[in-house]
């Protein structure tokens, strides 16, 4: 049992680099298929959570009504994810006898949504609430309607916080979707639980490496999206002055020269 660390790492590398582990075979589902399944659970749950939490957070932040919902969602975080997953599975899967996948998929997605809603909701709400009251006052004082204030001012200013909520939700989803393989479902967790059951530790650790890699990659993608979506005026990454001045976009403003004189 007591294998040296170096050997295990070598075995994991061997497991990960074996092309036959990546594609499906008659007996085994390959890494690519499980990766896609994993991404599918997470994407589905994230989209549903966004559809719920984003409008709700914007509404609560803008109107300052229903704050208790944010507190209630935060209390959900105390629920043990695995426990809720098992409970929902035991309740729901018997309704789908024969179509086993659906019976396990629904509880999994519900648990993932429950997990992703609180951070998105709380951050969206906090983002809108934290908008400088002076900015909000100026916006409506200039004649913006309520929805214009929300979508042209509050939402863009809240984006950094909203993004951090979405990123934190995505990370928790990827981590927890692993637990879905505790049920007879696909996903990268399959390698971890199968490896454990078969005492095939290179497979188990290789699964862990894959989950970690997916999480890091997802965060990187979301961080990149955030960079392009959030205004530079908020992130403070201003255009370099030297490149900004000869910028051709300034050429459409001929007044520039007049003002200097």
């Amino acid at each position: 049992m007591a294998t040296g660390g170096g050997d295990v790492i070598g075995d994991v590398v061997t497991w990960l680099t074996d092309p036959s582990h990546w594609t499906d075979t008659r007996f085994d589902t390959g890494i690519i298929t499980q990766l896609l399944a994993h991404v599918r659970f997470c994407a589905m749950a994230l989209l549903i959570a966004l559809a719920i939490a984003l409008p709700l957070g914007l509404f609560i932040g803008h109107t300052d009504r229903g704050r208790w919902l944010v507190a209630a969602a935060n209390a959900l975080r105390a629920l043990p994810t695995v426990g809720v997953l098992v409970l929902l599975t035991v309740i729901i899967s018997p309704q789908f006898q024969g179509r086993t996948d659906t019976g396990f998929l629904i509880p999994t997605v519900i648990v993932l949504v429950l997990l992703a809603v609180p951070p998105i909701l709380a951050n969206t709400f906090a983002g809108v609430q934290n908008v400088d009251p002076g900015v909000r006052d100026a916006a409506s004082g200039m004649g913006m309607t309520g929805s214009q204030v929300l979508f042209r001012v509050e939402l863009p200013i809240s984006l950094p916080l909203i993004f951090s909520g979405v990123r934190s939700a995505a990370l928790q989803l990827i981590a927890t979707a692993t637990v879905a393989s505790y049920l007879p479902l696909g996903g990268l967790g399959r390698f971890i639980y199968d490896g454990l059951a078969q005492q095939d530790y290179p497979q188990m650790i290789g699964g862990g490496v894959l989950v970690a890699a997916l999480a890091l990659l997802t965060d990187l993608v979301l961080a990149t999206v955030q960079r392009y979506v959030v205004s530079r005026g908020i992130t403070g990454r201003y255009a370099n002055e030297r490149t900004a001045v000869p910028d051709s976009r300034l050429a459409v403003l001929p007044e520039a020269e007049v003002a200097r004189g």
């Binding site: 660390g5 981590a175 927890t176 699964g207």
Partner: peptide
């Protein structure tokens, strides 16, 4: 912090020997 908990569980032993 980005690494999922379960991945961290299985990664700790080989990394620390």
């Amino acid at each position: 912090y980005t690494i999922p908990s379960i991945a961290l569980f299985v990664l700790v032993p080989p990394i620390l020997g």
